[in-house]
C-alpha cells in the first residue's frame, strides 16, 4: 500500500492504495465518483475516459499511481459552477444518449476532441470516436451533438 495524491475535479484527493489500483478504481471506489464507467477489459470501449492534466485518457488503462500529482477531471467535474458544459447540453439537445452508460466517456472524449480540433466535420468526428463504443445510438446523434457543440464553442 502507498499513498497516492492528486487533484480530482479541483479538489485534493488522496488514498492509501495498492500499487495495482487502476485510476478508474481509485475514482469509483475510493472517491465514490461513479459517473466514470467500465465497459470492457481491453481498453477499447472508452466508457472510462477522464482527463488527466487536460488530456483524455482511458482510466481503466492507467494506474492511479501514474496520476500522482496530476489534475484529473471526471464527468462530475465538467459542469463548472453548476452550468452544464456546451457538450453536455448538446448531448441532451440532440438526443446523443440513450442508456447513458457510454455517455460520460463520450462526453469527456468530445470535450478533448473539440479542444484539439475546434474545426470539425462529420468524418473527423467519426474517426476521432474510434476509442468510444456506443451500442444504443448508432452514433448518429452523438456525431450531431459533437458537431453542434463545436459550433457553439467557436
Amino acid at each position: 500500500m502507498s499513498v497516492v495524491a492528486m487533484t480530482v475535479n479541483g479538489k485534493p484527493a488522496s488514498a492509501d492504495i495498492e500499487p495495482r489500483t487502476l485510476l478508474v478504481q481509485f475514482i469509483r471506489e475510493q472517491l465514490g465518483l461513479t459517473g466514470t464507467h467500465v465497459g470492457c477489459d481491453t481498453s477499447q470501449c472508452g466508457a472510462c475516459v477522464v482527463h488527466v492534466d487536460g488530456r483524455a485518457v482511458k482510466s481503466c488503462t492507467m494506474l492511479a499511481a501514474q496520476a500522482e500529482g496530476a489534475e484529473v477531471l471526471t464527468i462530475e467535474g465538467l459542469a463548472a459552477n453548476g452550468d452544464l458544459h456546451p457538450v453536455q447540453k448538446a448531448f441532451r439537445e440532440h438526443h446523443g444518449l440513450q442508456c447513458g452508460f457510454c455517455t460520460p466517456g463520450m462526453i469527456m472524449t468530445a470535450v478533448d476532441l473539440i479542444r484539439r480540433k475546434p474545426e470539425l466535420d462529420e468524418e473527423t468526428v467519426r474517426e476521432e470516436l474510434e476509442g468510444n463504443i456506443c451500442r444504443c445510438t448508432g452514433y448518429h446523434n452523438i456525431v450531431k451533438a459533437i458537431l453542434a457543440a463545436s459550433q457553439e464553442m467557436r
Partner: peptide, 9 residues
C-alpha cells in the same frame, strides 16, 4: 496509432 486516448498515453 490506437485512438486519441491511447495516443495521449
Amino acid at each position: 496509432i490506437g485512438d486519441p486516448a491511447v495516443r495521449h498515453m
